[in-house]
């Protein structure tokens, strides 16, 4: 069966070891994690976990069902109609053209967020495939370091 990419949101009880239950489930059953982000949901005792995974239809179905079985898991959303964003930070040498970098970041919903003595840092937040294009485009400005934030998604 063909592997499909899937974005899954998991709403969990915000308690210690809940992340290890989720990551352990993926590791133990051999499921793939491409990205994973976690943050508390405002004004609640829940956390929102966004997982990007890949697998056959059978595996994706199992992932959802196995997640549901974990006691602290409230809700599992397999995203279909969603807005999906990923943030990335890139550190460039100060010798590169700041105007060019600024324009590049702006094209991908971002900008320069920090300038130091030797470096400048660009930030963008966009669809994962556009983030990939952005990173390709940055290559000509000799990026020193790239940090991707992992995907967050919300159903439309």
């Amino acid at each position: 069966m063909e592997n499909v990419r899937r974005v899954i949101s998991v709403l969990v009880e915000n308690e210690s070891s809940v992340l290890s239950r989720i990551s352990g489930l993926f590791a133990g059953r051999g499921y793939n994690i491409e990205t994973l982000t976690v943050a508390p949901v405002p004004n609640s005792n829940l956390s929102h976990i966004t997982i990007v995974t890949k697998g056959s239809a059978r595996v994706l179905e199992q992932i959802t069902k196995q997640l549901h079985k974990l006691v602290p898991v409230y809700k599992v959303i397999e995203h279909d109609e969603m807005v999906e964003k990923e943030m990335v930070l890139v550190k460039f040498p100060i010798e590169e053209s700041l105007a060019d970098i600024e324009a590049l970041c702006a094209a991908y919903n971002g900008g320069i967020v920090n300038v130091g003595v030797n470096i400048c840092i660009g930030m963008v937040a966009d669809e994962p495939c556009r983030v990939r294009h952005f990173l390709e485009a940055t290559q000509r400005y000799n990026p020193i370091e790239i940090v991707r934030g992992g995907v967050v998604a919300i159903e439309r």
């Binding site: 210690s16 070891s17 290890s20 239950r21 352990g24 133990g28 006691v71």
Partner: peptide
């Protein structure tokens, strides 16, 4: 104990 037994229990607790 909670870490080791996670994959072989239905659920587990560390009382804090």
């Amino acid at each position: 104990a909670v870490g080791i037994s996670r994959p072989c229990t239905k659920h587990n607790y560390l009382v804090r």
